[in-house]
Design a protein around this nucleic acid. Structure first.
Length: 564
RNA sequence: GCGUUUGUAGCUCAGUCGGAUAGAGCGUUCCCCUCCUAAGGGAAAGGCCCCCGGUUCGAAUCCGGGCAAGCGCACCA
């Protein structure tokens, strides 16, 4: 079984469908198309392991009461050689199916065999997908929002990898355009201030106010002295930028590495200009009739794709806009590099750009469905009960690296990936610092450490872990054991759902939930007990939980300690 | 104003494809270590699923209309 829940659901679907066909052949039901029906896992296990609403949804076409239909289907079921023991009709006409103990034993055997590959799917097989995330401006340090984007993007990439996709993690370096010019001006003014005095060199309001700019200027001055004070402005700016930018980019790389994010590709925006790709896509859009000239600028007809207003591609001063570069960048992703699917993790403040970028893809003849944008609601930073404005310009924001010095990396990655991207996140700094033992990540890690400890202790007592098929797994029949196994069985399904919905937070929550099931089991079922066979079976169960916890934590790049 | 995201317990959030008595953590009040780590488990209390309509056997979930909050509506990125 690759995905036990899905496969069992599909099996039950077939069983029910063939029962209906049989009933129709025997004229117990009228000749009608079978409506689509659900097979699901009831929240209350009294209602079976799997349940179907088939009788209710088909009441209309069969013109019979749901409970009567259910009875007819039930009479025609053949459950031999399946995992299903029995079927009960309940409530308004639900058909509730109960599975045998063999199913639960098989799940454990399956996990034991697959070990660290349990949960891997072929759902995205042969599909190349790119996840582009963080892509922070290289003009300054990363902020809290980048921390959230990093956790979400990196974990999403992992989930897609487990779901079978060929995944590329990418960082887009905005090393061109206006913000680099602003960076240059900021550095230049700080540099000149060092020699000419702060009062004699005005520092523009909209320039980067951060301390990091001053530090760069100072270090640059220490290295080169005043040789750039009286030279040509362009020469001075170029020297400053080519000194500071690589340092910043290197810092980005180191900081993200510390945050356990390893990118496959660092893509430079400047390459798009060097390769003349921006010109090329603007030319293509023009050839396809999607541009026009007005007030000296070249405009893109965004309104043709439902937007409210058109956008400038090439400004009157001849420089391309960010939007034009972004179109070229995405053309590169799809056409030049051939990704089947591209997922961008964007801050919600960029949501207005989703439609126009997708529209531009369509204008270039690229199916816009291949581009998905995960919009991440911005993080509100709270200190002492007050909102702290996250601003790179003020220089007072908490940087990613500040955060990682305050709280453990495990906790940061876990915390930022606990909620789905679309929810607004209040990040209380005081609480985050306090979190330590309160943080759910410890709860999960503790479960893993506990199991390691049990296995070690029993080993000292001469009880060693046996392979699953050597044990009487059917002895695991208490509700705590059954529920724990059931939850183990749902991992592949969780990964599939998480991949489909681009919601890696599901996996984090799965980890917490699994730890809860385990702790319950631990309290109610002693592994080391009088019944030798039961002990052995429970030990296998523990080992399976350990495997699954490890797999999940590995996916999230969080440590799975063997002792705490 | 237009667009977009969100609205579920005191707080922070889950809730799968529309299903049966709406869940968890924190907080509050109790209880459980003779024995594998109490960094754990159990119980109680706590609900107008933002409001109003519609769809249907059935709605927290889907549709329409409101209300409230966050974000966005540049020849910035």
């Amino acid at each position: 079984m690759i995905n036990p829940i899905k496969e069992t659901t599909e099996q039950l679907n077939l069983i029910i469908s063939s029962a209906i066909k049989k009933a129709i052949e025997q004229k117990l039901l009228p000749v009608q198309e079978i409506p689509t029906f659900n097979v699901e896992i009831p929240s209350d296990k009294k209602n079976g392991d799997f349940s179907s609403n088939v009788a209710m949804v088909s009441a209309k076409v069969f013109k019979l009461a749901p409970r009567n239909i259910a009875q007819i289907i039930k009479d025609n079921l053949s459950l031999e050689n399946t995992y299903f023991d029995k079927c009960e009709i309940a409530g308004p006409g639900f058909m509730n199916f109960f599975i045998s103990n063999v199913w639960f034993s098989d799940v454990l055997t399956d996990i034991s065999n697959k070990k660290d590959s349990y949960g891997r799917l072929d759902y995205g097989k042969n599909k190349k997908v790119m996840v582009e995330f963080v892509s922070a401006n290289p003009t300054g340090p990363m902020h809290i929002g980048n921390a959230r984007g990093g956790a979400i993007g990196d974990c999403l990439a992992s989930v897609l990898d487990w779901a079978g996709y060929d995944v590329t993690r990418e960082f887009y370096i905005n090393d061109a355009g206006n913000q680099i010019e602003k960076f240059a001006i900021s550095l230049e003014k700080r540099y000149l201030q060092l020699y000419l005095g702060e009062e004699n060199v005005e520092f523009p309001q909209d320039a980067y106010q951060g301390e990091d700019i001053k530090v760069h200027a100072k270090n640059f001055a220490d290295k080169f002295g005043d040789e750039f004070v009286n030279c040509d402005e362009k020469k001075r700016k170029d020297a400053l930028v080519s000194y500071a930018l690589p340092l910043n980019i290197n810092n980005l790389k180191n900081d993200l590495k510390k945050y356990r994010i390893d990118y496959d590709v660092w893509f430079n925006e400047s390459n798009l200009y060097a390769d003349k790709l921006v010109e090329k896509v603007v030319g293509m859009l023009t050839d396809n009739g999607f541009t026009y000239e007005k007030d000296g600028a070249i405009w893109y007809k965004a309104t043709q794709f439902g937007a409210e207003k058109d956008d400038v591609l090439i400004r009157a001063n001849g420089f391309a806009t960010y939007f034009a570069a972004d179109i070229a960048y995405h053309y590169n992703k799809f056409v030049v590099r051939g990704f089947d699917k591209v997922i961008n993790i964007w801050g919600a403040d960029h949501h207005g750009h989703v439609a126009r970028l997708k529209g531009a893809m369509q204008a270039l003849g690229i199916d816009p469905q291949r581009l998905d944008i995960v919009l991440m609601q911005l993080v509100k930073l709270i200190r002492n009960g007050e909102t702290v404005k996250v601003s790179k310009r003020t220089g007072k924001s908490i940087t990613l690296i500040d955060l990682l010095e305050e709280i453990p990396i495990d906790a940061a990655r876990f915390f930022f990936n606990l909620r789905e991207a679309s929810s607004h996140l209040d990040f209380d700094l005081d609480l985050a610092v306090e979190q330590s033992s309160q943080n759910p990540v410890y709860y999960v890690q503790y479960a893993h450490a506990r199991i390691c400890s049990i296995i070690n202790n029993l080993k000292k007592d001469g009880i060693t872990l046996k392979s699953a098929d050597e044990c009487e797994l059917k002895l695991l029949n208490s509700s705590d054991e059954i529920e724990l196994i059931r939850y183990l069985s749902s991992l592949p399904n969780e990964i599939a759902e998480s991949a489909k919905n681009y919601d890696p937070a599901r996996i984090t929550r799965y980890a917490v939930e699994l730890a809860t099931y385990f702790h319950k089991f631990y309290n109610n079922c002693r592994v080391k007990c009088d019944d030798e066979n039961l002990s052995a079976a429970r030990l296998v169960l523990c080992d399976c939980v350990k495997t699954v916890l490890k797999n999940v934590l590995t996916m999230l790049k969080i440590d799975a300690p063997s002792a705490m």
